[in-house]
């Protein structure tokens, strides 16, 4: 059993927790993920590490309530326990040789982008952050990004905060004005990462994308997290859990990944509704 040490709501659907898991806290690096189960019999879900405190032995996770399991997790409180928490899994984000980095985060993906930005800042790289949300209510981690970025641009789809539009607009402006990034790292919805990659392409800037496919064991056993890379005209199967989660954006077959991500859409909707009804009844 793993204790929830702190819990904080970042916006109406996004929650931050620190979980007591000393072995994971000691090892986890930005870009890696964990797998948790809320209760015995529960589903295993992967969540990217949003920070660690090795001294307190805690790992920070930030999650959006999108399905039954995140709903159950969101209902848990400080000092309660979840049944399983394993990691760190996957490879950490590569930082070697990168002196000028652009971090592009979207929605709850910003929770994963933030520790990556912090890491580059700590290493002395120039950090340009572009973060996008649907609207002002959904904005998270503004202060955290501000304190580790040399420049921060906030975008909202509806213009209710920062600039109106999506993250590719300022990215294109920067690239157009001659900004020479060593690397663009983008973390967020698949469709956003696809368009960030397409935006960067004419300028020849390398793009790293953080993939978050459906997973079960997360240790290189089930193969559920496979994705297709196009490398020199050849299709190669890779596994996000052991080969990723970071991949070269130019090689990823995003359309396939988007399709695979919807494999259980119906099941997930029903499970989510059933969980909501359950909590609704308890409260009435």
């Amino acid at each position: 059993m793993y204790k929830i040490v702190t819990k904080k709501c970042l916006n109406p659907t996004v929650t931050q927790m620190e979980i007591e898991a000393p072995l994971v806290a000691r090892k986890a690096r930005p870009g890696q993920f964990i797998i948790l189960r809320v209760h015995d019999e529960g589903e295993r879900i992967p969540l990217t590490v949003a920070g660690t405190d090795a001294e307190r032995g805690t790992v920070k996770i930030i999650f959006q309530i999108v399905g039954a399991t995140t709903k159950l997790l969101g209902e848990k409180n400080e000092n309660e326990y979840i049944s399983d928490f394993v990691g760190p899994l996957g490879e950490a984000t590569h930082t070697e040789g990168i002196k000028n980095v652009c971090i592009v985060g979207g929605g709850v993906g910003c929770a994963i982008a933030m520790p990556v930005a912090e890491e580059f800042h700590k290493l002395g790289a120039k950090v340009t952050s572009i973060i996008g949300f649907r609207s002002r209510d959904l904005l998270i981690l503004e202060d955290e990004f501000a304190s580790c970025s040399d420049s921060l641009t906030i975008m909202t789809d509806d213009g209710s905060y920062g600039r109106e539009g999506n993250v590719t607009v300022p990215l294109r402006e920067m690239l157009e004005s001659g900004e020479k990034f060593d690397m663009i790292i983008t973390i967020g919805p698949l469709v956003m990462m696809k368009f960030v990659t397409l935006t960067a392409k004419p300028y020849g800037v390398p793009v790293t994308v953080s993939m978050n496919p459906i997973m079960i064991d997360g240790t290189g056993m089930c193969g559920g997290c496979r994705l297709t890379l196009n490398v020199d005209g050849k299709k190669i199967t890779k596994f996000a859990c052991v080969d990723g989660p970071d991949f070269n954006g130019y090689e990823v077959d995003f359309d396939e990944a988007m399709s695979r991500g919807r494999m259980y859409a119906d099941f997930e909707r029903h499970a989510y509704e059933a969980t909501c009804n359950l909590f609704g009844k308890e409260k009435n």
Binding site: I216, C222, G223, G224, R226, S259, R260
Partner: peptide, 24 residues
């Protein structure tokens, strides 16, 4: 470890499992 696939077209379609995933 990781499941083998045949390397034929369509192995990433929805509804294609490795036996490891299906059984797990």
């Amino acid at each position: 470890g990781l499941p083998n696939f045949m390397g034929i077209p369509g192995e990433s379609l929805k509804g294609v499992y490795s036996a490891n995933e299906f059984l797990t």
